Simulated assay, not measured.
Amino acid sequence: MNESKQIYRVAEAARLTGVSASTLRLWERQGLVVPERTETGHRQYNADQVARLKHIAWLRTDRGLNPAAIRENLDVEEQSSTVEMPREANDPGPEIGPRLRALRHASGKTLDAVAADLGMATSKLSTFERTSHGFSIRDLRDLTGYFGTTISKISGEEPIENRSMVKSGEWKTWPTMAPGVTIQLLAEGRNMMDCHRFVLAPGASSEGAYHHEGEEFIFVLTGRFEITLDGQEFYELVAGDSLYFESRRQHSWRNRFDGETVLIWVNTPPTF
């Protein structure tokens, strides 16, 4: 078998690394390495991940670093070795995760502390900080709100100059942040409202409920859209339907149509 494609189970990866299997599980909880999983949930490591494990063991044993210092060391090494590649349309690129990591560092918070406060796995937060992938709209709202910012600001998509009129089809598109969710800007500048055009692929969703300050208005252009408020009010909107609600209410949503659903979504004040 090609060595680069070799897959190791946890016991074998532990033996190659020179630590116990429980140590590998601990490192996973600490966000130092994220193994792949089989369909039955068993951990498995590829050759690159085993090399990373060996490096972690060396940083811990020979350099005496604690988990937080190991994470910082790995992050610096990954950044210095990254080669910038051309970005595809709607690819979030590497910016959003590292920007949020910089906010975390500035706040003096550890990965474990932030993850615990937000109720998410440390490994998930660590992976997002490195790759800018793996988060839902709800996750991004929770994390940006935690640091007192917005998705617009952290993504670098907040426009500086106002453009009063936006021609059809000339909408600026945000970097993709959730599978099947395309968000287009309908009003540019620092306004009192966030005005967006959402294009949702079949099955696209918020992947959980979230809430924040303000008020929201939704108008469905095409397709079928389901939204739940406070876990007990269920609304199914079709083309021509609209909904107005207070943003402080827990809300989750999903495209229930077997094709694209397109809608207008307005928030005030700007919190997106």
Results as ranks from 00 to 15, higher is better:
residue 2 N to T: 05
residue 4 S to M: 06
residue 6 Q to G: 05
residue 8 Y to C: 01
residue 12 E to K: 01
residue 13 A to H: 06
residue 16 L to A: 11
residue 20 S to Q: 03
residue 23 T to S: 02
residue 27 W to K: 00
residue 28 E to Q: 12
residue 28 E to F: 04
residue 30 Q to I: 06
residue 33 V to Y: 00
residue 41 G to I: 04
residue 42 H to N: 01
residue 42 H to K: 01
residue 46 N to Q: 07
residue 48 D to S: 12
residue 48 D to A: 13
residue 49 Q to L: 09
residue 49 Q to E: 10
residue 50 V to G: 02
residue 51 A to Y: 04
residue 51 A to V: 08
residue 53 L to E: 06
residue 53 L to R: 06
residue 61 T to E: 14
residue 63 R to S: 09
residue 63 R to N: 04
residue 64 G to F: 09
residue 66 N to S: 01
residue 70 I to Q: 01
residue 71 R to W: 13
residue 72 E to R: 12
residue 76 V to F: 13
residue 77 E to G: 05
residue 77 E to T: 12
residue 77 E to L: 08
residue 78 E to M: 06
residue 79 Q to W: 00
residue 82 T to I: 08
residue 84 E to N: 07
residue 86 P to W: 09
residue 87 R to G: 06
residue 90 N to R: 13
residue 91 D to M: 15
residue 91 D to V: 15
residue 92 P to S: 12
residue 92 P to M: 10
residue 94 P to F: 00
residue 98 P to C: 00
residue 101 R to G: 05
residue 104 R to I: 11
residue 105 H to T: 15
residue 105 H to P: 09
residue 110 T to Y: 11
residue 113 A to L: 14
residue 116 A to D: 15
residue 117 D to N: 15
residue 117 D to S: 15
residue 123 S to L: 00
residue 126 S to F: 03
residue 129 E to M: 03
residue 133 H to A: 07
residue 134 G to R: 07
residue 136 S to H: 11
residue 136 S to A: 13
residue 142 D to S: 13
residue 144 T to V: 08
residue 145 G to S: 08
residue 146 Y to G: 09
residue 147 F to W: 14
residue 149 T to C: 11
residue 150 T to L: 00
residue 158 E to G: 03
residue 160 I to P: 03
residue 162 N to E: 14
residue 163 R to S: 07
residue 171 W to T: 14
residue 177 M to T: 11
residue 179 P to L: 15
residue 186 L to W: 00
residue 190 R to Y: 02
residue 191 N to M: 13
residue 192 M to A: 13
residue 192 M to N: 11
residue 194 D to E: 12
residue 197 R to P: 07
residue 203 G to H: 12
residue 205 S to Q: 08
residue 206 S to L: 10
residue 207 E to P: 07
residue 209 A to D: 08
residue 210 Y to R: 03
residue 211 H to C: 08
residue 212 H to N: 09
residue 214 G to F: 06
residue 214 G to I: 10
residue 216 E to H: 10
residue 219 F to S: 05
residue 219 F to Y: 10
residue 228 T to P: 00
residue 231 G to I: 03
residue 232 Q to W: 00
residue 232 Q to L: 02
residue 235 Y to L: 00
residue 236 E to V: 15
residue 238 V to I: 13
residue 239 A to P: 13
residue 241 D to Q: 01
residue 241 D to F: 01
residue 242 S to A: 08
residue 244 Y to F: 08
residue 246 E to Q: 11
residue 247 S to F: 03
residue 249 R to W: 00
residue 250 Q to R: 10
residue 250 Q to A: 07
residue 252 S to F: 04
residue 256 R to L: 12
residue 260 E to D: 10
residue 260 E to Y: 04
residue 261 T to H: 13
residue 262 V to L: 01
residue 263 L to Q: 05
residue 265 W to V: 14
residue 268 T to S: 15
residue 271 T to P: 03
